[in-house]
Design a protein around this nucleic acid. Sequence first.
RNA 1: GGACCCGUAGCUCAGUUGGUUAGAGCGCUUCCUUGACACGGAAGAGGUCGGUAGUUCGAGUCUACUCGGGUCCA
Length: 888
Amino acid sequence: MQLEKVYEPQRFEAHWAKWWEESSLFAADPSKPGEAFSIAIPPPNVTGSLHFGHMLEHTLMDMNVRWNRMSGKNVLWTPGMDHAGIATQMVVERDLAKQNISRHDLGRVEFEKKVWEWKEQSGGRIEEQMRQIGDSVDWTRSRFTMDEGLSRAVREIFVRLYERDLIYRGQYMVNWCPRCNTALSDLEVNHEDTAGSLWHVRYPVVGSDEFLVVATTRPETMLGDTAVAINAADERYVHLHGKTVRLPLVGREIPIILDDMADPEFGTGVVKVTPAHDPNDFEAGKRHNLPHVKVINEAGAMTAEAGAYAGLDRFEARKKVLGDLKEAGLLEKLTPHNLPISMCQRCRTIVEPLVSTQWFVKMKPLAAPAIAAVEDGSIQFIPANFANTYFEWMNNIRDWCISRQLWWGHRIPAWHCATCGKATVARVEPTVCAHCGSASIEQDTDVLDTWFSSGLWPFSTLGWPDKTADLDRYYPTSLLITGYDIIFFWVARMIFMGIECTGKIPFHKVYIHGLVRDAQRQKMSKTKENVIDPLVMTAKYGTDATRMSLLLGAPPGTDIIFTEDRMESSRAFANKIWNAARFLFLNMERAGVEAWVPAEQESYLPEPVNGVVTLEDRWIFSRLNACATQMNKALNSYRFHDAAQIVWTFFWREFCDWYVEMKKLKFEEGSGLNAHWRNILTVFESALRLLHPAMPFLTEELWQRLAAGHGRKASIAISVYPQPNGAADDEEAEQQMAQLQEIISSARNLRADAKLDPKEPLDAAIYAAGPVARLAEQQREAIERLANVKLTVSAADAVRTTGPMRSTPEFDLVLAVSAAQLGALKGRLEKEIVDLNKVIVSSERQLSNEDFLKKAPEKVLEGMRAKLADYHAQREKSLKALASLAGA
RNA sequence: GGACCCGUAGCUCAGUUGGUUAGAGCGCUUCCUUGACACGGAAGAGGUCGGUAGUUCGAGUCUACUCGGGUCCA
C-alpha cells in the first residue's frame, strides 16, 4: 500500500470519474426510499464549453448533491444542455461564413442539420468537462431543450397559454437587431452610456415666420416624424397650440400636439414624434392617433418613405440629413449629450426599434402568483436580498416578446391561413385551417425565444406534461443554484412557467452564487479572452484542489477574484492529506496492520488502550464530532465556504498537526492492529467522508486503498455522512489538550526567542498546581518530543531555577538557557507587559462602570472578571520573569 | 432616476441573532531538509474594521449622514 510521495491527481481522477459512471452510482431511482433531493442543472449553451464560472456552479451543486446522497436522501441531479437559439445560430453561421456559405444558401432544413451536427460535437466537449470536474449527475436522464419530449412540453404550454389568451400576436414596437435580423426581448438588449450629440433642428411653423426648435439625438428618424410635441403647461409655446409645422427636408405638414412626454426642462422643450422608430413615440402615437411612417427597414437601411435618402444605411443617412439641414440653415446648434445606446446582447449591433408583428406572452396574470410564491416564502432566495432584484423586475414586468426570426429553435406551433388570414394554434400539425377549413395553411416561420423552453426545464426534464414517476417523486425540485445574471432571464421565467404548467413552484430554494472574475476584476468573457477553461486548471492543480479553492472563496452571492495562489494553497492541502495517508500506510506496514476500516456508522467513540482512553484520542474524537456537527450545519444553511474552512482546519490543523504528531509516539513495530490503530484509522476514515463532497476524487482514491476488500460499500460516495453525536463531546479533554498545546508552544517560543538551534535538546522546568502538573507528568513524552526538551515537573510554589520564563495563569515554564542568549527575551517580555497594561486598564474601566454592572448579563460580567484576574496574574509573572532575567 | 452590494492585515477574503486581547489563506521576517509531507514544520511581524454622528453598559456587527468602488433595472 505504498503511496507516491507527491499528490498526483492526474493519475487517478479520470479512472474514478469513469468508474462512478459505469457503476451507475448516481442513477436516481424514484422507487427507492429516502426523502427526495433533486437539482436540475442550469443547462449550459450547447455551443460553448464550460468556463471557470460554470465550475464554481457545478462544484456547489455537486457538493450539495454528494452531501445529500451520503445523508440518505434519494437524490437526482439532472444534467443537460440548452439549444441557445441566437447564440448557437450565430456560432454556426460564423463557421459557415469561413467557407463563404450563408444559411440562405443552405436553406432552412439543411441549415438545421448543420446545427445538429455542431451540437453533437460541442455538447460532447461539455460532457467531458463535467466528468472531469466530478459532477455526480445521472447521465441516464440527460436532456436537451430540443429533445422530442421537451419540444412536446413547449408545444403543450404554448397552446395552453394561447387558449387562455395569455399568448397573443400583435403589431408592437420591438428591439430589432439588423445584423441578427430578428426581434429581441428587452432583456436581450444591453444599454451603454455613450457620448453623443443633441442636435437642435428648426421646424418652420406653418403660417408664420416662427420656427419650433426640436432637440433630437437621432436626426435621421425625423424623416418619419408625424408630429411634434410640446407640454401643455409650457408657457413659451401657448400661442402655438393647434398649429402645425412643416417637416424640413420632407415638406410634410404635421401637427403640434400637447403631451407630457415633452419635458419643458429638457432641451428646447419640444420633441419630435416618430411613432415608427421610438418606443415612447410609439406610445404617443397611440395616444394621439398618429400615422406611422417607416423610414428604416429591417436591415437598418432607409426605406422608400425616406425619399431622397432611400437605400442609405441609417448612419449614412444621419450624416446626409445633417448636411442637408445645415445647408438649409435649419440646424441651429448641437450640444454634447450622453445617451444610452441599446445594443444586441449577442453581436453588439445597435438595435433599431421597429414596429413589427410578433408573438407575446401577457405577463401580468402570470407574474402575480410568481410574485406571491416568493413573498410568502414558498420560494426562498439565498442570500435573501436577491428577492429584491426579483420583485423589482416582476413588479414592473412588461409583456414578453417570444418570437424570433431565426431558424434554430422551437418553431411556433401556429399555422397561418392564406384564405382567411387567421392563425390555427395546435399541439399537432393541422391539415386545414381551424377557422375556415382551407387547406392552404403554412406554419409560422418564427421560432421561440430560447428562454421559453428553458423556463420549463425543472419539469420538462422530468417528463411533463405526462404524469411520470420522476415528476411525482422529484418535483418540485429542492434547490436551484445559479448566478445573479440570469435571475430575470431564467429564474423568474421558471417560476411563473412552473406555477402555470404544474400548479406548483419549480424549486424551494434559489441559491445565488457570484461570478468568477479575473485578477483585474474583469468579468470573464470570450471577447476579452480572459476565459479560463476548467480543465486547464484541473490538469495543473488537480480537480479537488480547484474545487476546494472555489468553495473557500465563495460566500453566497459574492464574486470570486481568480488567482492561482488560491489553487496552490488548496493543492498544498490535498498534498497534506495525501501525505497523512501515506504516513499511515507506511506505519501500518511497519506495525503489521492490514487494511482496516471500522464498521460504517454515523459517529464513533474512542476505544481505550489498556483500559484507559488516551488524551489524544478523547480529544480528536471530540474534535471530529465538532467537525461533523459544524459541517452539517454549514451545509444545511448553504454556507459552503464555512464548510470548506471547517474541514480544512480539522484535517490539517488538528488531525495532522497535533493528533498524528502525538500518535506517532505510540506506534510500535509489529504491534499489529491495536486500539491506537483502530482509533486513528476510524478518525481518518471519518474525516475522508466529511471531506468527500468537496474533494471527491482524492477521498475516493484514499478510501478505496484504505477499505479495499472489507465488505464495505463500493464507494465512499455512497457511504454514510458523519453525524453529530453528543456522547463524543469531551470538554475536559479539549481543555487539557489546549493546556498541553500551550505548554509545548511556550517551550518552542522561548527557544525561538533565544535563537537556539531547534535540534539542541534543552532542560525545561514546569511549575504548576495539581491538575496541570499531573497533566504535564502524564504527557511528559509528548512535551519532551514535540518541544525537544528534558522536562522536570515541580509544584507551583517551588523555587524557580533562573532562566527565561514563560508564564500563563496556570503554569510557569523555565528553559535552561545561558545568560548570553537572553537578550531577545527581555524585549519580548517588556512588550508583553505593555500590552497587558492596556487591556487591564480597559477591563477595569469597564468593570467600574455602574451601568455596565447593572445591565450586562451575569455571564458576561463573570467572564470579564475572570479574564481580568488572569491579566493581573500574567502581568505579575511577566514582571517577575523580567526581574529574574535582569538578575541572571 | 430607482434598487442592491461592497469598503476589515501588503493582497484575496471570513467574521449568522451587538458581548470579553478581530481571524484564515497567500505574501513577508527568522530558523529547521529530524524517514508522511519544503505543495512541509516551528516561531513571528502586520489591522484606531472608509469617515462622521448617533443608539447602547458595550458597535467590525444596529441607525442616519457622508466619501469611495461596483452591479442591475429604467
